[in-house]
């Protein structure tokens, strides 16, 4: 593999990424005669023979197993309808809540407008089911919520949580990052604002090198 092939480049829909019979179409690409054509806007990556496209913008696409942060939209007799910012609204059944809840008044646990950290149990056509049965899930009280581009979430978390742990430790805040781009922050007032600004910096400069150092310098000031 030559050096050139490893490079990533931004492509627009309908653009020919590479041409020739040596290549195979991967995610969000299509083969048209000889050419591998991009099907959406993003970063094209040629690895070996396979050409794939990494999305860099757009709405959150829910997948099974994602931990997300959502706001209660409505309560029903057997669960909660939760807005997680995807193409469909999602449902958290009462049975998926690990602690005892009085069935006659489930808004005692969480009412409209409350924020929860939940996991996606299944994604079916037109509906998403959630669960609370996992570690670290549940209602989030106090603090604030910010929204970032969901495709930048891996950058906010960093390698094995390095970036988010750095921000947490330096600002003395609790932070939960949802895969859907919602981030919950709780701490003292200064810490919270500092963490919001630091996350803003990470999102803004997501592609630059030495980002951890930059954030470190920013947090020291």
């Amino acid at each position: 593999m030559t050096k050139e092939e490893k490079q990533r480049k931004i492509v627009i829909p309908g653009e020919t990424i590479v041409s020739g019979d040596d290549y195979l179409p991967g995610d969000f690409t299509k083969k048209e005669h000889e050419d591998i054509v991009a099907n959406r806007y993003g970063l094209a990556e040629v690895s070996g023979r396979v050409v794939r496209l990494i999305p860099i913008s757009g709405v959150f696409e829910p997948r099974r197993g994602n931990t997300v942060i959502g706001r209660v939209e409505d309560t029903t007799f057997n669960g909660w309808i939760i807005d997680i910012g995807g193409p469909y609204s999602s449902f958290l059944p009462l049975a998926e809540c690990p602690r005892f809840i009085n069935k006659n008044d489930i808004s005692e646990f969480a009412g409209i407008g409350d924020v929860m950290s939940v996991k996606i149990q299944s994604v079916k056509k037109g509906s998403i089911d959630l669960t609370l049965k996992s570690r670290g899930l549940g209602k989030l009280e106090g603090g604030r919520i910010i929204k970032v581009n969901p495709h930048k979430v891996p950058r906010v978390i960093g390698k094995e949580g390095s970036m988010i742990n750095l921000i947490k430790n330096q600002t003395k805040t609790e932070i939960t990052v949802g895969q859907n781009g919602y981030i919950w922050i709780r701490g003292d007032l200064d810490g919270e604002s500092k963490a919001v600004d630091a996350i803003g910096l990470v999102v803004e400069e997501a592609i630059s090198n030495g980002l951890t150092e930059k954030v470190e310098d920013f947090l020291k000031v």
Binding site: P13, G14, V37, N39, R40, Y41
Partner: peptide, 11 residues
């Protein structure tokens, strides 16, 4: 539309 990450055949 392209910027919003919508899947599209071409521009």
């Amino acid at each position: 539309l392209a910027h919003a990450g919508i899947v599209m055949k071409e521009m």
